[in-house]
Amino acid sequence: MARLQPKGPLFTAQERAILLAPDRHTQTRKKLGDGQLLLVQVETSDQFWTNSSQRGHIISLKSTLQQLVVFIQTFELFHEENMIVLLAAGDTDSCILYASEQLGSLLGWHQDTTLAAPDQIIRSLEEWKPADHKEGLEKPAVSATLSRALCLLHKARATPATNKLLPRILCLHGSPDAASQYIAIMNCIFSAQRNNVVLDTCMLGSDNSAFLQQAAHLSGGIYLQQGSPPVLLQTLLTIFASSIHMRTFLRSPEQAGVDFRASCFCHKNLIDLGFVCSVCLSIFCQHQLECPTCGTVYGSSAGPSTMRNTAH
């Protein structure tokens, strides 16, 4: 099948990913201390946890949170400068469950000093009433939580003391991707890159997330599909406690392959090969006469010379 190619060349998804990724070797990271600013976002959507218990997973949300509490305490102990924020990612809403002492006031989160960390987390989760479940929204909004996480990190880094910390986001995620969120997630990834935020992902269920894989790949983080859920704590301590500096010293799990598929901007289909606007790099599964994103009109002069046979 021959397709008329827009002004821009035809890229595979992988080529486009390379095009978008800044050269990570020349990228100069600001010399920072050893302390880390970690934001853990854990999926609390009912949908995922009810499904996973039906599918016979031994791990429950409560046990996940308990393991996270131990991780948080260990992480804070690990280095005197380490700070951590725990964000619950619900179906439509997100909520801070816990923040290290100095961060609480910065982020406008009020800590009850009379409670120990584990009780605090469980209580804030109980107190939090997520907005009513919207009909028609079939998948939880990862992108929204991710954007909020980035905003919180940005806010948390406003003081001189926290500015020196290495920022990192760890997504504990379970649901499969929603193709409609592709653009939003890509935008999050780019802003993370810009702010030197590393995006790590630890998948809780058996699903894989192509978008979060790309996020880890582009920001230099680790993407891990967890084999057996009950050892979450051990995985967190072994792999996700180390800062980006320390990872050069340790042997980190390598990503076998990254699913570079993008979803097209026009029909939100996951595609391997598509058309890319030469001006704004938007992706389309079909040929367009005018770019719907940036409004560039592709010249009608695109004659037979720019025709190309595609693999399809």
Partner: peptide, 28 residues
């Protein structure tokens, strides 16, 4: 030192002795 800290962390909840070989494979 930072690397030693990580090793302690990895072993913190490991109840049984583990082969020295394994620990030797942890570093880059």
């Amino acid at each position: 030192p930072p690397l030693a800290k990580h090793y302690v962390l990895r072993l913190l909840f490991v109840e049984r002795p583990i082969p020295a070989r394994l620990i030797d494979s942890w570093h880059a």
